[in-house]
């Protein structure tokens, strides 16, 4: 198979056929990678919903150089040979993305000060980069009751941005799907059938894939802010999963356990509920060393162990340069 040449924000890379624009952009680096709220590499058919990864295709391909008429979702559009894509360099894209962020925040409660996800929330990062400082929405925001789905997971639908990631986890990683989306439009919600407990060995991964604070770990709720904790790579012998996790510690105490997330916020391997919820004693784990967090969000401020003192990863923002 011959490689396809694609140019994103004037940077060219050769990728294999079938690669999406988003994947190609991530291969080039964070400077050109569009943000993604709903796309998740390990979940099939994810993506296309949130519209934050919209990009402009200014040249379709070598064969058909016409530009695409509308902005396209980069996570679901595969590259063609000779394609030219504008992301941060296109004012149209930046404008549309700002619009999408405004829409996502329209009904979001912005209760970051009391949200467990704060610090590692993709929506927080996204609104920091693209959002306005003040909302234009003067209406009451939609709210939902909190739901306990199982004894370990709490669903706070008010914060949800309907990325469908957790639904895909349920579809693809767990034997029986018991939750999905009910209702439609603005009031559609992730729910189980009459608060049926989500109970299977891998349900905890819903928490990891949730880009916002809608699905939270009940064993960790309100225990600590994430940036006070030390992330440590660790492993144990597990018969259900790889056992490779990150322990979030305060002193010697393990506050919570998550999967290992890469620089795009996606876990490297899904872990089982036993590792996640039940093994909180330090003796259960073999520690490998501190987990590097190469992210630009607020969590990096409390990053321990490395020599850097909040050197934000070189993120080029459309209209402001972080230093």
């Amino acid at each position: 198979m011959s490689l396809l040449k694609v140019t994103i924000d004037n940077k060219t890379i050769e990728v294999e056929p079938g690669t999406t624009i988003l994947q190609a952009a991530r291969m080039i680096g964070p400077d050109v990678a569009p943000p993604a709220m709903c796309y998740y590499t390990k979940l099939k058919t994810s993506g296309g919903y949130c519209r934050t990864c919209l990009v402009k295709v200014s040249k379709g391909s070598e064969k058909d150089p016409r530009p695409m008429p509308k902005l396209v979702a980069s996570c679901r559009t595969t590259v063609m040979d000779g394609m030219e894509v504008e992301n941060f360099t296109s004012p149209e894209v930046v404008d549309a993305r700002n619009g999408v962020v405004e829409f996502l925040l329209l009904n979001h409660p912005l209760d970051c000060p009391i949200c467990d996800q704060a610090g590692e929330c993709h929506l927080q990062d996204l609104s920091y980069e693209n959002g306005k400082s003040k909302t234009r929405n003067e209406f009451e925001r939609r709210t939902f009751e909190k739901i306990d789905i199982g004894d370990k997971i709490q669903l706070h639908m008010t914060r949800c941005i309907l990325c469908y990631r957790c639904v895909k986890v349920a579809d693809q990683f767990t034997p029986e799907r018991v939750h999905g989306v009910i209702n439609r439009g603005e009031v559609s919600e992730i729910s189980t059938y009459i608060q049926h407990a989500v109970d299977n060995d891998f349900s905890g991964n819903m928490i990891d894939v949730c880009p916002v604070g809608a699905l939270t770990d009940k064993t960790f709720r309100f225990k600590s802010r994430v940036w006070f904790l030390k992330p440590v790579d660790a492993h144990r012998n597990c018969d259900k999963c790889s056992g490779k996790t990150v322990l979030w510690k305060y002193g010697q105490e393990i506050y919570r356990i998550t999967g290992r997330k890469d620089q795009w916020g996606e876990v490297e391997e899904f872990i089982c509920n036993t590792c996640r919820f039940d093994k909180k004693a330090p003796s259960d784990w073999t520690e490998e060393g501190p987990r590097k967090l190469s992210r630009h969000s607020v969590i990096s401020q409390g990053h321990y162990g490395t020599k850097t003192k909040f050197v934000a990863s070189p993120v080029t923002l459309p209209n402001k340069q972080l230093s």
């Binding site: 519209r51 999408v100 829409f103 996502l104 439009g185 603005e186």
Partner: peptide
């Protein structure tokens, strides 16, 4: 309610 611009 699938994609955000229309939903919100």
């Amino acid at each position: 309610g699938q994609c955000s611009p229309c939903r919100e």
